[in-house]
């Protein structure tokens, strides 16, 4: 904003979010969308066009869409639009391997909470992120002191890139799938209540690892 870039934001979440207040406090116009019982990614992709339109009407130079990022199969990125994944050093050393498209397909991976773990753990965590997504720029950012935040900001805004419409654009990867009786409100347990896209755990394969 100090560089005269007009910024707006939208926060997608599931049940509740206070993140919109954080944007507001920083003087950034913000909208929030709560998906309720729906997968927030599906909710995101069905609404992002309208959000972009809002952004265009407001005359923003930069529009940030922050997703809920609830499950490790989240995939909220659109092709050719800058994608950032934020994960923290405390999430566990195997977490990079557990996260799907949200990490694998990101352009920039921001790693936070590096101020409270050891240098060794930071290095190992970054190396693991790198082996999952070798093409991304990996940045360590301290959310408390802001160290690294300025540097990240220089990578966000591209003067020459404009997005007028999302129509026909594609997601980088398909969203988590679902359409079964439980999606539609079924609560009873039992084979006879399961309809649609249902999958069974393969117990006999479990003992040998995969």
């Amino acid at each position: 904003m100090q560089r005269g870039v007009k910024v707006g934001a939208v926060k997608f979440d599931c049940l509740h979010t206070d993140d919109d207040q954080a944007y507001q406090k920083a003087g950034i116009p913000v909208k929030k969308g709560l998906s309720g019982s729906l997968c927030p990614d599906h909710y995101f992709v069905s609404n992002i066009e309208a959000v972009l339109e809002w952004g265009l009407n407001e005359g923003f130079d930069l529009l940030i869409s922050e997703s809920a990022g609830l499950c490790n199969r989240c995939s909220p990125y659109v092709k050719e639009i800058k994608a950032i994944c934020v994960i923290d050093n405390l999430s566990g050393i195997n977490t990079p391997k557990k996260i799907g498209p949200m990490l694998r397909m990101a352009d920039i991976v921001v790693i936070t909470k590096g101020d409270i773990v050891s240098q060794a753990e930071r290095e190992v965590f970054a190396a693991r992120v790198h082996s999952v997504n070798p093409t991304a720029i990996i940045m360590n950012i301290n959310g408390l002191t802001g160290q690294g935040a300025y540097e990240l900001s220089t990578l966000l805004f591209d003067q020459d890139k404009h997005i007028d419409s999302l129509k026909g654009r594609k997601l980088r990867f398909s969203l988590p799938a679902a359409l079964c009786s439980y999606c539609l409100g079924e609560t009873r347990i039992g084979e006879s209540y399961q309809m649609g896209n249902v999958r069974k755990i393969k117990l006999e394969e479990n003992h040998n690892g995969k």
């Binding site: 405390l90 409270i116 773990v117 240098q119 753990e121 930071r122």
Partner: peptide, 10 residues
């Protein structure tokens, strides 16, 4: 590389 007083092994 950084070493600070708040750092812990996790």
């Amino acid at each position: 590389a950084q070493l600070s007083q708040n750092m812990n092994f996790v």
